[in-house]
Amino acid sequence: MTDRSVRRYLTPVCATAISAGIVLSGSPASAATTTTGFNAWCQAVSVLTVNQAAQHIFTVDAPAQVNPGETFRYRIQPAPAAYPNKQSIATTTNVSRLKMDYQLPDNATFVGAEVVPDTGVNLTGTPANVLRVNENGDPDPDGTILRLSGDNEVIGNSPKANKASVGGILVPKTQKNLDGTPTADLSTWFRLPAIDVTLTAGASGDITPKLRTGGTAANIGDEGNYNTFLALAFALNANQWAPTRCIPKDTQDDAAPVNRGGGPLATIAIGEHTGNVTNTALTAPTKAKAGDTVTLSASITPATSGGNVAFVVDSIQVGEAPVVDGTATFDYKFAQWGDHKVTARYIGDGAHRPSLSDESTVTVDGGTFGSVELPPLGSLQLPSGS
């Protein structure tokens, strides 16, 4: 597993860079897949306190619509991840006490949640489970938070918290990929397991799975941040512990609001969709240069001035734009060369039903690196005899 668009590093002690995400492994019947990418700020505290930006990606598989009183489930899973062999003066030993906190949705009654077997990779320590906890992190049958962890052995916000001992879900250092092959850079890959959440739909409204970002959990470095873990490394002739916490924000300013990572990761409508049937047509360039801004445009018919369009690149939602007079536009920069699949999804506005565009392919090459113009892919020549 070496796709840099989803890989994350858990960097201990002297710096941190974590990119948590979700990929689906298996799915409920008749499910729709929603993938949301967003920026996050992660804080590691050890010899130094370091804040660093990261890209997080979450995918939820859930039915798009359920009937009032219907019992259903959705599935969510953190993406493959990796931590480095060494960062600056610190040599990584392991990562443990991992957790993911999810907010229970409104407009539904909780039935149960469980870890999906055989969806975790390279995990030891305390077996992963799902607990219903309250704001203090205590197991509570009336709690509003679902916690994926190793029996609540985490770094904080728990009666079993500890910042200076290995515990909970442990990722041993293997220096291997997910498939067991050695990594070229000596990093260690792993994957947290998927969880299935079972709910009974209420009478009306939308059910929106979210990350935990309520209350103080919306503050950078808070023990209630949805994604936390404990890195252990050897530096300065001693073991160094680096408890790390991540929150969906575009800046490290606590006054800044959470970004779309704090919003719905999926929307499950209760009852049949009502309103006019719509059609979404995407306009995108067939070619682009890496690093250049291009405009993606979606036309909604019949024309409306309500609701948003989500623009999706390679199955990842990269942004949203409002519909005005039947049109929504979004500026985007392709960072990587190659062919990219782009779609536009109209979310609807109550009077108009959602719709999805056909897929377009944008071929990206060339671009700039600093002040140097890079050639198109087709113009690259290999030396004779290569």
Rank of each mutant, 00 (worst) to 15 (best):
D3R: 09
Y9V: 12
L24M: 15
T33M: 04
T35R: 08
T35A: 14
G37Y: 10
F38Y: 11
N39K: 13
S46K: 10
Q55F: 10
I57P: 00
R75I: 05
R75T: 04
A79N: 08
L98A: 03
M100R: 00
N107Q: 11
T109V: 14
E114D: 11
V115L: 03
V130M: 06
L131N: 06
D138E: 09
D151Y: 02
N157Y: 00
S158M: 01
G167Q: 04
P172A: 06
K173L: 04
S187P: 10
L192Q: 08
G202T: 08
S204R: 08
I207G: 12
G214C: 04
G215Q: 03
A217I: 04
A217H: 03
A218H: 05
K249D: 15
I268V: 13
I268P: 02
A269I: 12
A269R: 15
N279M: 13
T283F: 14
K287D: 13
T293M: 01
T295C: 03
S299W: 07
T304Y: 02
V309M: 10
A310R: 13
D314S: 09
P322Y: 11
V323H: 05
F330R: 07
F334W: 13
Q336M: 12
Q336A: 15
W337V: 15
G338H: 08
H340V: 13
V342K: 06
Y346L: 11
T363M: 09
G367P: 02
V372W: 13
L382A: 14
S386F: 09
